[in-house]
Structure formats: structure tokens, C-alpha cells
Nucleic acid binder design. Sequence first.
DNA 1: CTGTTAGCGCATTCAG
DNA 2: CTGAATGCGCTAACAG
Lengths: 333, 333
Amino acid sequence: MKRPSSRDVALRAGVSQATVSYVINGERKLRVSPETRERVLRAIEELGYQPNAAARALRTQRTQLVALLTPDLANPFYPILAQAIQDVLQEHSFELLIANSRGIASQERHFLDTVVQRGVDGAIVVAWHLDHADVDRVLQAGIAFVSVGSDFGHELVCAVASRDQRGAAEAVRYLIRKGHRRIAHIAGDQSTPPGRLRLEGYCRAMEAAGLTVDESLLVYGDFTRGSAAPLARRLLAQDVPPSAIFVANDTMAVDAMLSLQELGYQVPHDIAIVGYDDTPEAQFVRPQLTTVRQPIAPAGRAAADLLLKQILSAPIQARRIIFDTELVVRGSA
Amino acid sequence: MKRPSSRDVALRAGVSQATVSYVINGERKLRVSPETRERVLRAIEELGYQPNAAARALRTQRTQLVALLTPDLANPFYPILAQAIQDVLQEHSFELLIANSRGIASQERHFLDTVVQRGVDGAIVVAWHLDHADVDRVLQAGIAFVSVGSDFGHELVCAVASRDQRGAAEAVRYLIRKGHRRIAHIAGDQSTPPGRLRLEGYCRAMEAAGLTVDESLLVYGDFTRGSAAPLARRLLAQDVPPSAIFVANDTMAVDAMLSLQELGYQVPHDIAIVGYDDTPEAQFVRPQLTTVRQPIAPAGRAAADLLLKQILSAPIQARRIIFDTELVVRGSA
DNA sequence: CTGTTAGCGCATTCAG
DNA sequence: CTGAATGCGCTAACAG
């Protein structure tokens, strides 16, 4: 019932604990004679010995663990990101600890505590409410750190990001080119950078085209499924309804589109819709969603690479990787 | 740069380590005088002290960590399950370590090794290739264990499951009632229990209705997106094509339906489609997918509850929780 | 090539 | 109510 320790193995093999450790961690040089090694291996086998990770971590100060913070696993964006990260980490035999903040500030901070307490080797974070001091705490603890999406105004953090404002503006310009003038925006949570930046991109593009951003064209969701449907309906119920909507992410865009279609609106004829992210759901709906593609998997891989570089080599200096977005024109606009 | 330890806190507060430990783990009885406690708390604050989880785990043999094994995060089924589990665990301040097996046997085993080595307090597992001995290894290590979907023929494991065969049969009977006679099946990976059971359910229902299961009606996918489209096309390209398809999960069903629609088939008029799982994507497609609902979130919560019961109380005896499935009739069949 | 020794940071006896 | 001492299981110096 009790787990065997390396001492048990040593006893059984008639060697010292150190020797057991050597054969397990096989320093490049085979410091152990073949026959001793053989005996130890057999003892390990017979006892079903598994090294104790906590003890090892305590001793080595390394955990082979990487933590990932995500705002919402139900948004397909994040599983895709997580998969990509995991693929990279796996090659280097790091495990991934995934946590969920639900976009709540306190949970984001709690995650940072966890990261420090567990002494994970590195953390990849998608967070919206952290500040310079929060991040600093982690950096001070000597933990490798990569942010996805924001740099928290901290000059030392590695970050991978894309140009939200630019992507949003491109989407809106496209709608303008197609002749739309009353273009509404279902914005994301304004306490988050992507929420604010995409709204800003929308405003910029409108103003650049000499279109006024009417208050009646602006509504605010929270990026989750279900938050957009009522907003879309309200938008369309106005006296002078918009002819197009730019939605801050695909999850909400799909929600909005389906609910409008239920009301009998023809997309894109009655109402054009553009989303953001290009998650798989964009291709499930009919018409397929015109949207701004973010390279999710490449971003995940880049983040993991950046992190591994910090963990494995000396702490590199801060690096930013910016991905370009791309407007994908499908049927909805 | 270096993290403070409880000794540093003790020094600064002018007390012993033991006292620090007492104020942190606050035995229900306040064994520490208020003023001492206050001093310690201040020292903790000032140093930014965070207990070291590895040391704690080594000492207490508990990690406050639960591990979850999942075959494929890209299938919305699993994020939903994970969310539900995490919600329950969070209330008891357990962290969740999510891993991905991609349905590969070796990875499933590797996960079990991880679980033992890290000494997690419990593991929830969705696995398809484990056997009695594998599970036994974990149980022997005294780790709480709950399986989702299968019990690995082990009398001691707690499991939550649903009746795959029954659910599949119900779907097929529904198609038969609607007058379909040539009903095809896009099966899941036959090396997995759900793949086999749903196929079996299909066969049973067909035979019970006196319909022969034609080999030309049976094709095999692997539960992932993309695997079903070519199969669906092949099915429909036959001389005497089926009038309905029962697909082993929604991910494949959506894939099949969209690809058939692209070819000009009208669903459900030309070809009826029924899926399995009732993941959100079933409601995104048009027509919406008729499917067999599994209560994913309740299953997740039940699994987490079962696990917590094992961790917190004495090791309870094995318990099986079986959820009923429900046919949800929408537009696709 | 192998054994001995000394902690890593914490929680927990046992004395005082 | 508090302090000193012990060891969880492992690895890294250092001896031999």
C-alpha cells in the first residue's frame, strides 16, 4: 500500500540511494557499471518504484510543470491554444496545468499565487486584469513567464500578441467598402484589452470614413455565448436599424447571427455580420462567418517556445512576437 | 530574488518556525496568542511569503491537486466536462491538472505514471485503453480515482457513465419509426468502448426491426472533426445510398452534414442525420442536429463529487453512477 | 565507479 | 502557548 522510495530500491539492489539516483537520472556519462545498473533497474521494476515528484522538486527546484491560465475553456479559442502549447511542451516532457479564471480579476491573481507556491517552471497567461506589480511578483520569484495578448505594461515580460485594433479596423473598413453606412458593434468586455482595442479599431475606421459612431450602434457584451443574442435583437429593433454588425468575437457573432436568423432576418442580405477570431464555429454556421482570423495555434506554439527558451537557457530578455490578423471573407458579410 | 521560507518569516517575527506554521494552518483552536499571530502575519505580508507546495506535499502527503485525463480538448465535450469538474473542485480549493491523451494508449499510461509520481490527491480519467492492472497501480498508490465512461472491469473503481448502447439504439429506432430503412452508421474508433457500444446499439436496433446491417452501410471514423466528411460522401456515392445516417458523435455528425450539404444534399429531406452527445455545435448548424444528449456537466460534477468524497472521507467503496441519455429531436432527422 | 553526508522547506511530535 | 528537534524522499558534493 505504501509507495516504495529510492531507499527501498537501494536496499533491494544492495547499493546506496545515490547510485539509484544516478541510474535514474543517467548523467550523460554512464557513471554506473552495467551490472550495477542492471540490478538497480530490476529492483525498480520489481518494486514498481516511481520517483516522488515533490521530493525531487524540493531538492532540485524544478517541477517539470508549466501552468496555463485561460479565461474561458468554453470558448474554442482556448482549447486550441492549449493544445498547441501542450504539443510543444510534451516534446520536452513538461506537464501542463490548466486553470480557468473566468475573466475574474481575483482568480487571475489567485492563479499567480498558485504558480509561485507550486514553483512551476513557467507560466503562460491569458489575463486581462493583472498589472505591473502582479507580474513582477512572478518574475521576482524567478519563474519563466509568457503573456498572450497583453504585456501588462511591464518591460520585462515576453508576450505574443496580435494587432486587435488593426484587425478590427480592417473588418469595419471592409463593411464600409461593401457600402454599409450604419454599422453597429457588439463590443466585448470593456474591462479587457481586446474588448477595448477592438472597439477602438471600430471607432477609428468609422471616423476615418467620415461616419459618426452613433451611441445607438454600440452595445456591450462579455465575449461569452448567450450575451450577444439579446443585444443583436435590440440593435435590430431600432427605428433605423444597422445594416451590418461587427462583433468582437466569433462566439458572440454566432450567437447573434443565429438569433437574428430565428427572427427571420436574412444574413447577409438584411444584416451583414463580421466576427473575430476565426474559431471552428465560424465555419459551422450558414452562411459561414466572415471574420478576422487570429493565428491561434501558431501563437500557442510561439508562446510555448518562448517559455521553453527561458526555462532551458539563461533568462532571455523580453521578446514580443506580434502576429498579423487576416480578414477571412465568407458568406455572412 | 530568492523566495523567503517559513524560517525567514519566523526570524523576522521573532518566533519559531512552528509558530509560523500554526498561524498559517490555523488549527481550529487558536493555539497562538493574538499578538504573536499578528506579528507573524505582518512578517508574512512584508516578506511576501508564500508556502512552498513541494515541501508541504512532501511533509503532508497531500497536494491539493487533482488530475484530469481527456482524449481531445478540441471536442467541446471535454472542456464542458472540465469546467464542471473545476467548478466543484474550486469550492474545495483543489487545483486541476488537465492532460491530453489524444486517445493514445501510451499517453494514457503515461498519465497514470504522472499521477503517481506527482502524488496528486485524485484523478478523473476519460480513457479508452487502460486495463485492470493499470488502474490497480493507481489504486494501490492510494490515489482517489474516478473514471468517466468505463470501469475497466475493475470492481473497485468509481465510475460515472451513460448507456451508450441504449442511447444509440434509441436514435436508430427513431429513424426507423420515421420510415427509414437504409440507415448507415458512421462509427467511432472501434478500439474504444463508446465506439464499440454505439455500433452495437445500432446493430441491435436494426436487427430488432428486421433490417440487415449491410456492410456497405458501415464506415469507421475516429471521433474527430474531419474524419467523417469523406466517409459521408462515400456512403452517399453508392448505387443505393442510405436515407439516414446515425453518427457516433456530434463532432463527426456536423462534419458529415456540412460536407453533404456542400454537395447539394438537402438535410433531412435527401439524407437524415442523427448525432450523439448534444454538444453546443449541434445547435449551430442548420438544420439543427437531432442528437442523443449526454448530461455532460452533471456527469462532470458527479465525478468530482465522487472523487472528493474519496479524498476527504475514508475511501468509500466503489460506486457507479449511470446517467440516462435522451434523444433530442431537432431539424436534421 | 560507488557510498556517505547534508540539506531543500515544511509540519509535527514532544518539552518546556 | 511556544520552541527545538525530526524526517518526508530526493539529489548533489565530496570521499573513498
